[in-house]
Design a protein around this nucleic acid. Structure first.
Lengths: 194, 194
DNA sequence: GACCTTTGTGTACGCCCGTACGCATGCCCG
DNA sequence: CGGGCATGCGTACGGGCGTACACAAAGGTC
């Protein structure tokens, strides 16, 4: 009688949200069926029922983050050095917890093959958003560079330097904006596995 | 009588090596005082004695990886686009386990402040190795770009494309090799915290 | 050679974990 | 309207975890 709540179609969704809060607070290491059940205020059995493994839950969580990120990105498209450097700065300047969360889930794909297709989707999505203005190769490099700069800021504690980021983004952009498709190797980003 | 082995001055070192093997095999998630004790064939108490916390052990492990990496890097200095792209390719083409190990320890600094100074040391070391030929800003950007490219390869499963890497490295290098110190913001990489 | 300090070891405790499995619940079909 | 069945829940089990702590062994000091 404590929990008569049956037929709750948003259950699954609420569990994913709870998982995101847990990871934000305690990192992936702190994620367990129990912690997420407590956070979502659902019984333990419910999480194991909806998500057979933690990997499954992480996949759903990363997908959700991706979707929200892609939304923000597309809304604010300004694919020149100024715009990208400012975007990076705003992102890094936001709540540290959120940035850590997004990086942590993304980087988790390093060790969890199940997450790789989702990470690949993310990279592809961002690349695709930039590619119309810059060409695919350049877009991929921009993603790599900005990833790398963001990581350096977070991993080493160096403060973000927007001027510097703008200059380096400009170098990538400058030499080959709008390079014709095929100018460089254009192997599409393709997910591993399934 | 099972373990009369006392006064073993290399004990600490062997524990660190064992930790590296464990992380390589099972990831940081698989690291515990117990697993590393088993791997090093020392009693449980020994690991907790030498390393009060897992963070301490990780710091020692990351330092060790850094040292070996820096050695290889300095031995093979060829700071032009060809050389760097080839170096990255060789590194990524090597045993996946080793590459994963190094990235995983480095990236762990995202969530573990204790590792950040060590990650910062690594970044600084690599930057310093490149800086004499390229200037500091450019060197930092090269590290960021190469980090980012490597990550994309590992996270998404895209195969490494040396041609593409060479081109993008060249773009960073081309516009400002040997820029005079101070030409761009040159805030030194400084560790957070202690 | 007898203390005492430092160094290292073994064991035991309480906690949290994933998983399995039996049971309550609410729908569907006859 | 009543039995059967899928869905969802709660609990209990075995195992691994970090940590604490009492104790053995070795070094140093007189």
């Amino acid at each position: 009688m404590p929990r008569p709540r049956r037929y709750d179609p948003e259950r699954r969704e609420r569990i994913v949200d709870a998982a995101l809060r847990v990871v934000r607070r305690d990192g992936i290491g702190g994620l367990s069926h129990r912690t997420v059940a407590a956070e979502a205020d659902v019984p333990l059995g419910s999480t194991t029922y909806h998500f057979g493994s933690l990997d499954e839950l992480l996949v759903a969580a990363l997908r959700k983050v991706n979707a929200s990120f892609a939304g923000t990105l597309r809304a604010r498209t300004a694919p020149d050095a100024d715009g990208l450097a400012r975007l990076l700065g705003e992102w890094l300047g936001g709540e540290r917890g959120q940035v850590e969360l997004e990086y942590e889930l993304y980087l988790a794909a390093l060790r969890r093959p199940a997450l790789r297709p989702v990470a690949a989707e993310w990279a592809e999505e961002v690349t695709a958003a930039l590619a119309p203005h810059t060409g695919r190769s350049t877009a991929r490099a921009l993603v790599a560079l900005m990833d790398g700069i963001g990581l350096q800021v977070l991993l080493t504690g160096t403060p973000y330097d927007e001027e510097y980021a703008r200059e380096m983004i400009a170098r990538i952009l400058h030499e080959g904006p709008k390079e014709q498709a095929g100018g460089l190797s254009e192997a599409p980003v393709r997910p591993t596995g399934t």
